[in-house]
């Protein structure tokens, strides 16, 4: 089948690409679009390292067909910081050493941001269950959960 032409919005920028009908969004992000911040840890939706948002909904880019991007708006880790200013979650992850090897970090950050957009005051249990789809083998999750909870508290304070 001929390549399909897709018009979409990625990290706020209008974008066009060609893809095979069977290609995943992750393959297109990492390949032709050069957005390698989304990682492939499994290709089966189990590890969450490729977490992105599709029209505001958290999805695994490896489980999404690239053609589903037509007319949609996608946000990846590359769209999380604003210019030089890191997102509060990114800053907190650095300050609290909530990463070791860092391969799961983009997915964890995308998932955590998605949580805080829905629930600005999550409990530890809510954080743990929301992030249950993001595997991390280095940290034991302790510092990740603490960083998300502290960021939420900071953001609530700043919004008040």
């Amino acid at each position: 089948m001929a390549k399909q032409h897709i018009s979409t919005t990625i990290n706020g920028e209008p974008m066009e690409f060609l893809c095979e009908p069977h290609q995943s969004m992750l393959d297109v992000l990492r390949g032709p679009l050069g957005l390698t911040g989304s990682k492939e840890g499994c290709g089966s939706g189990d590890c969450g390292a490729c977490s992105v948002t599709l029209d505001g909904r958290l999805v695994c880019a490896c489980l999404m067909l690239a053609m589903e991007a037509e007319g949609a708006s996608i946000t990846t880790i590359e769209g999380m910081a604003t210019g030089e200013a890191l997102h509060p979650l990114q800053q907190k992850f650095l300050e609290m050493a909530a990463l070791q090897c860092g391969i799961c970090t983009p997915g964890v950050l995308m998932a955590a941001r998605s949580l805080l957009e829905r629930n600005p005051d999550p409990s530890e249990t809510e954080v743990r269950f929301w992030l249950a789809g993001n595997l991390c083998r280095c940290t034991g999750y302790d510092k990740i959960v603490r960083a998300v909870l502290e960021t939420a508290a900071d953001m609530r304070e700043n919004a008040a």
Partner: peptide
């Protein structure tokens, strides 16, 4: 695969 080879996920663990 990660679905059937079960490494601890975030909701499996307490603070360490």
């Amino acid at each position: 695969g990660f679905l059937d080879y079960r490494m601890p996920v975030c909701s499996d663990l307490p603070m360490l």
